[in-house]
């Protein structure tokens, strides 16, 4: 099965190199005219109405805007866990529509790290085991995966807590475990949904410093959905969304002034 997955992975990579449209130079994420709706008939809701967004390599992009403006839908499309209706969207040159669902899942496992608002840590796994899950998904043995996860946990300041269950950790510590899980397999794109919403300002800043310090590199990108104005200063660019479209992309200074 692992061989098969490797084969699928190779196909996905090949597609990204030859069949898919080549990404514009210097762009990790390229979206143009992306639309997405939910429901049908009278209940039809347009979540995205033609989003244009570009995220460069090495960039931390924040998505801000009122609730229901389409931020979560947009990161779901970018992360490949939701199909768009129309438009173009490629991540590191891969257009998800050119590969199968299975290939997309495998590609996502290798290239994208997630930090969920609700953490979604498995309650019966220890911190290290939770952080090791992406490696285990990629087929790495448990002992080796947990060892690597313990190293990452140490980098996020959770040395000595690797054997704790999520229920034995504070909210901030759980968030760090979630971040370790997003980093452990060294993905090229990290997608975070409200990573600081449950944290106090001090812990929130600490988490952001961590994300920016550990996750960012020239060949990577970071997208963060947030309402938390306290962390805007950590962004390289901030995209403001309203009613399903990106209305403005600017540096944090421009936004706060």
């Amino acid at each position: 099965m692992r061989e098969m997955e490797g084969k699928d992975m190779a196909t996905a990579t090949k597609n990204s190199r030859s069949d898919a449209k080549p990404a514009p130079t210097g762009l990790a994420v390229h979206c143009r005219g992306v639309t997405k709706h939910y429901g049908a008939g009278d209940n039809k809701v347009m979540a995205l109405r033609g989003v244009d967004l570009e995220i460069a390599y090495g960039q931390l992009m924040m998505l801000v805007g009122p609730s229901g403006c389409g931020k979560t839908t947009l990161i779901s499309v970018i992360a490949g866990i939701l199909d768009r209706d129309e438009g173009e969207c490629s991540v590191f040159g891969v257009d998800y529509e050119t590969i199968s669902q299975r290939q997309r899942t495998l590609w996502r496992g290798q290239n994208i790290g997630f930090v969920f608002q609700a953490f979604n840590l498995l309650p019966t796994l220890t911190a290290a085991e939770n952080a090791a899950v992406p490696l285990m998904i990629l087929g790495e043995g448990r002992h080796s995966a947990v060892k690597k996860a313990e190293d990452v946990l140490a980098r996020v300041g959770l040395e000595g807590r690797s054997k704790s269950l999520p229920s034995q950790l504070s909210g901030g510590q759980q968030q760090r475990v979630a971040i370790a899980r997003a980093l452990v397999h060294q993905p090229r794109l990290i997608v975070c949904d409200e990573p600081t919403s449950a944290l106090d300002e001090h812990t929130g800043h600490s988490v952001m410093r961590l994300l920016k310090g550990v996750a960012m590199a020239e060949d990577r990108a970071l997208v963060i959905v947030t309402h938390d104005a306290r962390i805007f200063s950590f962004a390289d660019r901030i995209a403001t969304m309203n009613d399903g479209v990106v209305t403005r992309v600017a540096a944090p200074d421009a936004l706060t002034h």
Partner: peptide, 8 residues
């Protein structure tokens, strides 16, 4: 979450 993280 496992599905999002890449579990087929």
């Amino acid at each position: 979450a496992l599905k999002a993280l890449g579990t087929t």
